[in-house]
Design a protein around this nucleic acid. Structure first.
Lengths: 217, 217
DNA sequence: ATTTAAATTTAGACAAATCTAAAAATAGTT
DNA sequence: AACTATTTTTAGATTTGTCTAAATTTAAAT
């Protein structure tokens, strides 16, 4: 497993949400910030090693083996993110670049010990789930904040939009993972919502409420 | 800085103990487990980037800039080793391979936060000193074993008396360079000391403790 | 059903880091 | 000082991952 192969597998993994058809060469090339011809070359190599199934012009799908490798890279990435935030005082929006490097460190013991050291977290600092060592993701029944009715409460467990701008905005208004949010009012005309948390009240836009996941509490 | 360049600089750094002449191509190739021709190629590249001074057939020396880079890699390596042993339950002999990978992760903040998280250690689990962020190694504050108080530990780093008799005595009781000695008790009347090392306890005389240098650990 | 547009693949080239084999320089020995 | 032996460098080839440009296939549109 070279670094490049791992990154391609990870990209295919992330692009494989639509279960039906394979990931297109162009989409993959775009995600990898490279050219379609390079993607084709790598796809062939991954197919040779049977990490993906590939038919010309039909896109790629991960094999069981490829998916396990990809999931393990994602697992490492997200565990390191938790480590950086919880132990080394990184902010949400600073962890990605470093985790991109750490995720490629190879050591079974390292990652299992890290997992234990962090007390077996199930989500990363952005609320994305952490695959277990078998590549399985804990099914989670998180719902959008926008789906809560006035009077209901929920614990913030994840985000839809993980752009730097959004993360910084949340940071500014002091909404973070694990915080409990209560919906006080909903304005019907623009769907903005009045929230209560940390003994304060704040009005947030519909954009915000449709990009925050909560677990009802 | 590619991974390979960093590894070569590190190797040159470790081989540069004799300050007089440069590191020979063959020695470098051997340390890198590669061929002399490959070493020559890389030396040229490093010279182009002025990380080393190089004259054909004369070996290489690090420039100030090259030494700083090498020291920073060594710094990262040793800090990660401390992390692995102290936080993730690695044994001292399991850490090297993983640290070889972690040392190449690039993030100023990461390494400074890690340093603080580990409480600014000055030596790694093998007793080797950790360069500071400017590449400087804390002047060996080696002290006499006799200056340690009960409960303190030190790594044996040198001798005052190097007579054959003393060396043979140390050999017999299995005290060698690099070994960690813990002072358990001190007898006030004759200054003899009870040491613990290698899972055994032993009483040694004041003569012995005033002729062994340790670095506190 | 053609024709055009878009997506994908192929072919050939390049840079990085390595190798082998051969040439050149240095060091050691008589 | 001349001859070996060793060390070091050069020249040319290889592999990995990438690129550009051209060819091919699929999709879309008239």
């Amino acid at each position: 497993m070279t670094l490049s192969e791992e990154n391609y597998l990870k990209a295919i993994y992330h692009l494989s949400d639509t279960e039906g058809k394979g990931v297109s060469t162009n989409k993959l090339a775009e995600a990898m910030e490279t050219k379609a011809s390079s993607a084709t070359d790598m796809i062939k190599k991954l197919a040779d090693k049977s990490f993906v199934n590939y038919k010309k012009y039909q896109g790629v799908k991960l094999t069981k083996e490829g998916r396990l490798i990809a999931a393990s890279v994602v697992r490492k990435h997200r565990l390191w993110e938790v480590f950086l935030v919880e132990k080394l005082n990184f902010n949400w929006d600073e962890v990605h670049e470093v985790a991109e490097q750490l995720e490629h460190v190879k050591s079974e013991k390292l990652i299992e010990e890290l997992d234990a050291y962090l007390d077996f977290p199930t989500v990363d600092p952005h609320g994305d789930p952490i695959p277990d060592k078998y590549g399985e993701i804990q099914a989670d029944k998180k719902v959008l904040l926008s789906s809560l009715k006035p009077g209901e409460k929920g614990i913030c467990v994840g985000l839809e939009d993980t752009s730097k701008e959004f993360l910084q905005y949340l940071d500014k208004i002091k909404i973070s993972l694990g915080i409990e949010l209560k919906v006080l009012e909903k304005e019907p005309f623009d769907n903005s919502v009045v929230l209560q948390f940390n003994d304060q009240q704040l009005t947030v836009s519909a954009f915000t409420t449709t990009n925050i996941y909560v677990r009802k509490s």
